[in-house]
């Protein structure tokens, strides 16, 4: 019942790229890990993602970006989350993101970004650990 808080996570596919294999695989993996996964579908704008994140009161937003637009999309979503008073939400994700960009994004307050070939278990563990740290702090 109330003893164990469910992790709510929004899996989003921002931008115009329709390659959702990764997003679907990770959404299913999160579900199988016991998370409640809100999947918003394809072709989402940063505004749509943040709007959904706020209404659904999620703990985490995970975005899959393969389109190379990560330097625009991640900071924009982060900015909107902060503006909406949802700065407690972890913004993480994965995709084709060069290492320098990963570092630059992490500096801007974005969580871990997972590259191709990362096992889904790594992302699950990361979210669990982050969540546990939040709730003991």
């Amino acid at each position: 019942m109330s003893d164990e808080r469910k992790i709510r996570i929004l899996v989003a596919k921002p931008g115009l790229d329709g390659h959702d294999r990764g997003a679907k695989v990770i959404a299913s993996a999160f579900r199988d890990a016991g998370f409640e996964v809100i999947y918003t579908g394809l072709h989402q704008t940063p505004e749509m993602i943040v709007n959904a994140a706020v209404q659904e009161d999620v703990d985490v937003v995970a975005m899959s970006v393969l389109s190379g637009a990560h330097m625009t999309l991640f900071p924009r979503v982060k900015e909107l989350l902060d503006e909406s008073g949802a700065d407690h939400v972890l913004l993480t994700g994965g995709g084709i993101i060069p290492e320098d960009d990963v570092a630059a994004l992490e500096e801007r307050g974005i969580g871990r970004l997972f590259g191709p070939g990362t096992p889904t278990t790594a992302a699950i563990e990361y979210v669990r650990e982050w969540f546990a740290a939040q709730n003991t702090a």
Partner: peptide
């Protein structure tokens, strides 16, 4: 507006 950040990228 929906093209923001994706022009000429891929």
């Amino acid at each position: 507006p929906r093209s923001l950040g994706e022009v000429g990228v891929c």
